[in-house]
Design a protein around this nucleic acid. Structure first.
Lengths: 144, 144
DNA sequence: CATATTGTCAACAAAATTGGTTGAGAATAG
DNA sequence: CTATTCTCAACCAATTTTGTTGACAATATG
């Protein structure tokens, strides 16, 4: 999606290009892209010079929308979804569930962040984690 | 865990009691409780009048800790974990990954919330979702 | 029209995860 | 020594994730 957002307005992008950029098997990507197309997020054209492009301007779609469309909800548990609400199985009464109360809060915070970021936004990149250095107790015990 | 927190200081709680309260097969709960015991969150005693109790005072353990101990990390994707960091497979370079940048933010927000709530805290309960009423477009389109 | 190109889609399948069961112990109290 | 209660490894079944296969449909070009 981000790849398509970057190419928005520049005509169709071909499967092979996206697959290469995303390091994912081309055939598998067809499944994903076809799904996105069915969801209406992406348009496509077949044949020579065919490909995929965003059906919606990247400024008009947030990361929150994306997750809602593709995963059904931003919530971590079904009972904490605000729209696609569903009872968790084997759970206590919802009105008495402390876990649910917390998960609703987590969902709301996540939504507040992800609904504010559009596919067109320049996202502040974070440097890669320093892995397997000679010594790695560099004082950064920032939590998990 | 919440059940054990409520009973903290009142001696061992037996498997059967927790299984009943949590609506979960007793035999399955043994697996979970034994795991919690191995993780050091819970202590246990066998034999008559045996049972489980919290190894740590409920005021000294946050929901964030709980999730870190049991799931390894608060992050939704391995590369967004601050402590148990791991590369996601089939992913682009971490330093270039916008998804990771967002997921790190989500993790931080989640941590800020869950690290601030202790097992001993009285959690504001949320009324159960109104399900399957006669008409349910009650104007609450609050998002998913 | 023929052909090469490129997406579509249903069906299958391997691997991992989730949710759970079984059954043989081992500790503890009485 | 017996009843109670937790321990733990080894399964098992269902589901989800992560793909693969192959036949087909649309499009552009010559």
């Amino acid at each position: 999606m981000q790849h398509l957002a970057d190419r928005y307005g520049h005509g169709p992008v071909q499967l092979a290009e996206i697959a290469g950029a995303q390091n994912i098997p081309a055939k598998f990507l067809t499944v994903i892209l076809s799904e996105l197309t069915r969801y209406g997020l992406v348009d496509s054209r077949r044949g020579r010079d065919g490909g995929y492009w965003l059906a919606i301007a990247p400024i008009d779609i947030s990361y929150g929308d994306l997750i809602r469309i593709m995963r059904g909800s931003l919530a971590l548990v079904p009972c904490a979804s605000r729209f696609a609400h569903e009872k968790c199985k084997n759970c206590v009464e919802e009105g008495d569930c402390r876990t649910r109360a917390l998960m609703l809060d987590v969902r709301d915070r996540t939504a507040q962040l992800l609904d504010g970021v559009r596919l067109s936004d320049r996202i502040e990149l974070v440097p890669a984690f320093e892995a397997e250095g000679p010594v790695n107790d560099t004082g950064n015990d920032t939590g998990t």
